[in-house]
Simulated assay, not measured.
Amino acid sequence: MDWLVAHSEDADIDDPIPETVGGTLGVTSSSSSAPAAGDAEEKEGDVIQEGEQTAQSLVCQDCGVLLRDETAAQRHAMRTEHVNFAESTTVIQPLTEEEKRLKLSELKQRLQDKRAVKAQADKEDLKTAEKLRRKAGQDMTEAKAKLEEKEMKKILEAKKKEKEDERLAKAAIKAQIEADKAERARKKQEALHGRQQAAAAEAEAAAAAASAPAKVYTETRLQIRLLEGQPVVQTFQASDKLSAVYEFVQGRVPGSFKLMTTFPRAEEE
């Protein structure tokens, strides 16, 4: 193709190429001159034997694509993950300007298509992400609502339990008050009964004392504490007067003195 591009202005560019038999590889025979007798014979090495072809390119055995060199093969392997390559005798001709333009246009179109596909994929990913975000928001809202409902139930149950405990406490206090009232009434009744029994006993004792003959006392014993602090005990007749006591003390205390009782306090000269 490069040769065609270089010789496109030659006058004989459109003339057919004459067929030649034999000859050396790479040597073009003239159509006007006949081959010499010695040149018509094949020499050793003129004919390429099987397996002696020179490798001109690489072929991917996984997909059959011809590749220009190892670098192209490496790029192809990175892009397609194909790993089976072999040498090929097929010569990859260079592209013309028109082919290059077409190839470039095709590549641009592929790039645009790829970008469009990627943009569509990104758009779909954004839609999916938005759906997931909304779904996550809805799930979070529902979870929050369920949590609030659960907390509200706990609060209501706690209040209900508190009211029930308060009711039980009030009932227990009321029962205790009633028990205390009953206990006080019982104690009051017992005290009244005790007083009644005591009154009856006293009445019985008074009646017994009234019915018994009165005891007659003829003597009395007094303990007199002198000024020195020494007590003196003396027995007097029940009919004796206080003057007898005074005379008894006067015989033991010189000078004037007074007679006193501690309780109730009274004095007598």
Rank of each mutant, 00 (worst) to 15 (best):
V59R: 06
R68T: 08
A145E: 15
A36D: 12
A119S: 08
H82A: 00
P213H: 02
E70P: 00
A11R: 06
D122Y: 01
K187H: 09
E166D: 11
K43Q: 11
E142F: 07
H82Y: 03
E247M: 11
K123Y: 09
S211C: 12
T80D: 07
R265M: 13
A34S: 15
A205I: 13
Q230W: 01
T54C: 09
T261F: 05
S30N: 06
Q49P: 08
T71F: 06
S29M: 10
H7I: 07
L132M: 02
L259R: 01
V59F: 03
V65I: 15
D12V: 11
Q237F: 04
G251K: 15
S211P: 00
Q49K: 14
P94K: 06
H7L: 00
L67H: 05
A210L: 06
P18S: 00
E190Q: 09
R115C: 03
K114I: 00
R225Y: 10
A244G: 04
S33M: 07
Q109D: 07
S8L: 01
R75T: 09
E106Y: 01
A11C: 07
Q237W: 02
A136L: 10
R79P: 01
E130A: 10
A199E: 14
M78E: 14
S57V: 04
K144V: 14
K163T: 12
K170M: 13
D125I: 04
G22W: 02
E149T: 15
I17E: 13
L4W: 03
S8V: 11
S31C: 05
A72V: 07
F263W: 02
P254W: 00
L147K: 10
L168F: 09
V83F: 01
L107E: 12
Q93K: 14
